[in-house]
């Protein structure tokens, strides 16, 4: 029991730190990437090549004056960013970061909790993630904030449906709801993206909408809503909202890599004849490589595609994504029945 608690605590702390560091360095990566796409240099004054820029930004955020508007609801105004941050950090619990490590007799799982309903847990966290934005936007007592919050909630609810429906097909073909088992099933090249390509496309589009990234960043559409739900926030309150977005991006990249791109499985790794621990660590490194790819993809899309109009966003969600996901479920179900029937 003691070893179990200790290993889980260590794992949670490591994941927490890694998440924060990755989110922190995603900010500079995003700015550098944007600069590269637009043929600029990007931030390069702080440290060698601008590598200390996130720290400088963090210090700036902390040092700024915290302004709470006079007519704002104070308690909820502070609760909003806290909730956004907490829910963003919660989903990492069910992600399998690698195969188990063996230290002496002790087996350390690189997954905090292998719930038998792991995917549903991710949905649960995603579905309560909207409260941080809604509460913050309402408590600001500003019409632009409120409009941003309402947009965010309706957008997230609409795309959550398509997201869940797209994963139903994956659940049908893998036959499990546990993230650990889904990752373990995809050893070698048996990645789910090859069996469920349509499901993956729907999922990644919905992930963009759920994380409020361009082209679906209407809740913070500057040309219409000033800053959207975080218009009234300053200092670290604003920092938390911006930071939560990067954490969400990291977590949804990890979820996509786990469910569709084999998680920690690296093709041909088991043929190299390495020690199990080394193999597990290389698998974890490869997993982080996949996550980095998806984070870069998020940024690439942001600086390539312009923002949608709001009615276009809703039409895409309800009239394209959800029917496509339903068709995908139908196809998957028929293929599964045919396979059972003809034994291929």
């Amino acid at each position: 029991m003691g070893g179990f608690l200790l290993s889980k605590t260590i794992l949670i702390v490591i994941i927490f730190v890694i998440t924060l560091v990755i989110a922190m360095y995603s900010t500079i990566l995003e700015r550098k990437f944007a600069a590269w796409l637009q043929d600029r240099i990007g931030p390069n004054r702080t440290g060698p090549g601008g590598i200390l820029q996130p720290l400088a930004d963090g210090v700036k955020m902390f040092m700024k004056e915290e302004i709470i508007p006079a007519n704002a609801h104070k308690f909820l105004f502070i609760m909003g960013p806290m909730l956004a941050m907490t829910t963003a950090l919660m989903a990492s619990v069910v992600i399998p970061w690698g195969k188990s490590l063996k230290i002496g007799d002790f087996v350390m799982d690189l997954q905090v909790a292998d719930l038998n309903i792991g995917i549903l847990y991710v949905f649960g966290v995603v579905s309560i993630g909207v409260y941080g934005i809604m509460i913050g936007g309402w408590a600001s007592n500003n019409k632009f904030s409120l409009l941003g919050a309402l947009r965010a909630s309706s957008q997230m609810i609409s795309y959550e449906l398509a997201m869940s429906l797209s994963l139903v097909a994956v659940i049908m073909s893998t036959g499990t709801l546990s993230m650990g088992e889904i990752a373990a099933q995809q050893s070698g090249w048996h990645w789910n993206v090859f069996t469920q390509p349509l499901s993956f496309i729907i999922f990644i589009i919905c992930a963009f909408a759920e994380t409020n990234r361009t082209p679906f960043d209407l809740p913070e559409c500057e040309t219409e809503l000033i800053g959207g739900y975080h218009t009234e926030y300053s200092s670290m309150g604003l920092g938390f909202y911006l930071f939560a977005e990067y954490i969400n991006m990291f977590i949804s990249s990890a979820v996509m890599a786990t469910i569709f791109f084999g998680g920690y499985n690296m093709p041909f790794l088991d043929q190299l004849g390495l020690a199990p621990n080394v193999e597990a660590l290389i698998g974890t490194a490869f997993f982080f490589g996949k996550i980095a790819f998806f984070i870069l993809f998020f940024m690439w899309v942001r600086w390539t595609i312009p923002r949608f109009r709001y009615d276009q966003l809703m039409n895409l969600g309800w009239k394209v994504m959800i029917p496509l996901a339903l068709v995908n479920i139908l196809i998957t179900g028929s293929v599964l029945i045919l396979r059972d029937h003809f034994n291929f």
Binding site: L120, G124, V126, Y131, M134, L150, S154, I157
Partner: peptide
């Protein structure tokens, strides 16, 4: 437990909040 959170806390209550705010 999780379906309760997803459906009630995550979807229905968001709509309630939405309507009350509107």
């Amino acid at each position: 437990a999780l379906v309760n959170i997803i459906v009630y806390a995550g979807a229905i209550m968001v709509l309630f909040l939405f309507v009350v705010m509107l």
